[in-house]
Design a protein around this nucleic acid. Structure first.
Length: 450
DNA sequence: TTTTGAGTTGTTCGA
DNA sequence: GTCGAACAACTCAAA
């Protein structure tokens, strides 16, 4: 007897309730990953490289038993179930709009073989935290209080006496382009996590906003592929000597943001790609396809003439990652200085981010744009110069990613046009005047609210 | 039931 | 240079 364990964003062995359920079904377990063209089509080279690396590491975690198949899940999973005579298919419950539709299709296509969902990629399953009257929270802080009170189960054990179903043909791993990746997979996630617990957690609240320092956990890519579960992380934080520090409290809050946005998306699947706040649907936007100005292309390629913005975009393209503080600044620049509707930026981020997650990414964008849950007030427009001076005070972050400015010392690098020869090595002029565009953004909001 | 205070991430202006 | 006020409107939960 065999149970399929269909892995999606849970490429790990430890703390995986769906694996426990598959094992308890009573026979061998066959772990399978489906390379779904619908998802791979939009993935950039960095994302493909990370998926490939995470799958390779997962195959080691599963002692070589992981099978990869390519195609539509509603075709592949039932076919594989027939091929090996599986009596059940086990998954972690998927909560994103595409994942929910896909799983319904697969469940129908499986017919008599049950699709069993156990657990989710979250400490608290999306949809569970509710207000007293049963409706979902709209504001983060009350959500986070209720989320903590709700609590979460202890990490699930690795099943004893686990038996893998072997000898099934596998497609090659999806090809990853030749891109440098940070170590990924379950062991790498664990190693990085322990390093952060000991060296970063206690002072996380003071240093997390500084892109020039190596002060963030770097756990986002591991959460995306599920090489570690947030439940494990929360248990580890609670048990750590630094677990009662302000830094730990702040880190738990960041994990809670991930859960909050998953909850929002669960209740409002339409908000993946359209404004959550309907009263701002009358906003007027610039057309990102309008090549005449080339402003959006300049943003995408890190040539806006605002060093903090350009450093961020170049970090994104080079590493598939951008510091959270800089994500807010570049998002604000696209939305409020270039007046582009947020989905264009959200889509670009998802193509390039190694940690790209539709709930966190798209609702982060909605927050900046002012259209989301608990949104930033419309008058809150990030100033890319001020933000750079405040959070990259020595200019080191900018010079790391913008070599044309390596000759400009200190914080002066945030305004190279003020420095003699500041633009002498090829760094571009500013494509827009921030003061002018800020006023234009406020005018557009004012008009839309009337 | 009504009121009240607080709510991730900011900027600008004028004193 | 520093500091407080102003920049809306709405949700939530405690009082």
């Amino acid at each position: 007897m065999t149970a399929l364990l269909w892995l999606r964003r849970d490429l790990r062995l430890r703390d995986l309730p769906a694996l426990l359920a598959a094992h308890e079904a009573g026979g061998a377990v066959l772990p399978v990953f489906v390379a779904d063209p619908a998802l791979l089509a939009s993935a950039g080279s960095v994302r493909r490289a990370y998926l490939s690396a995470a799958l390779g590491a997962a195959r080691e975690s599963y002692d070589g038993a992981l099978v990869v198949r390519e195609g539509r899940p509603e075709d592949v999973i039932p076919a594989l179930a027939r091929e090996v005579g599986a009596t059940s298919v086990h998954v972690s419950r998927e909560t994103t709009p595409y994942g929910r539709r896909r799983d319904r299709r697969v469940e129908r296509a499986l017919g008599d073989v049950p699709l069993v969902a156990t657990g989710t990629p979250y400490a608290v399953g999306p949809g569970l935290v509710r207000k007293g009257d049963g409706t979902p929270f709209q504001v983060f802080t009350p959500f986070s209080r209720a989320w903590r009170e709700q609590g979460w189960p202890s990490p699930a054990p690795v099943p004893a006496g686990l038996r893998w179903h072997r000898g099934v043909e596998s497609a090659p791993l999806p090809a990853g382009d030749d891109v440098a990746v940070v170590p990924t997979g379950e062991a790498a996630a664990q190693a990085r996590w322990e390093e952060f617990l000991d060296d970063g957690l206690a002072h996380y609240d003071e240093t997390r906003d500084r892109p020039d320092l190596d002060a963030t956990s770097q756990m986002s890519v591991h959460l995306k592929y599920g090489t570690i579960h947030p439940r494990t992380m929360l248990a580890d934080v609670a048990a750590h000597p630094a677990g009662t520090t302000k830094g730990a409290e702040r880190f738990v809050a960041e994990l809670c943001w991930r859960e909050f946005y998953a909850d929002v998306l669960w209740h409002r699947p339409d908000s993946a790609w359209s404004d959550l706040r309907e009263d701002l649907r009358g906003m007027t936007y610039a057309d990102p396809a309008n090549a005449a100005a080339g402003h959006v292309r300049a943003w995408e390629e890190g040539r806006t003439g605002y060093p903090f913005v350009d450093a961020g975009m170049r970090q994104l393209l080079a590493e598939g990652w951008m510091h959270n503080r800089v994500r807010m600044v570049v998002a604000s620049f696209l939305a409020k200085d270039l007046h582009v509707w947020w989905p264009h930026g959200a889509r670009f981020f998802l193509q390039h981010l190694r940690d790209g997650d539709i709930a966190s990414n798209n609702h982060g964008w909605q927050w900046v744009a002012g259209t989301g849950t608990d949104a930033a007030p419309y008058f809150r427009v990030f100033n890319p110069i001020t933000q750079g001076e405040r959070f990259d005070p020595a200019g080191e972050y900018v010079r790391r990613y913008v070599p044309e400015l390596s000759h400009v010392p200190g914080a002066a690098v945030h305004q190279p046009w003020q420095v003699p020869d500041g633009l002498a090595h090829g760094y571009p002029e500013r494509i827009v005047d921030h003061g002018v565009e800020r006023a234009e953004a406020l005018r557009r909001y004012e008009a839309a609210r009337r």
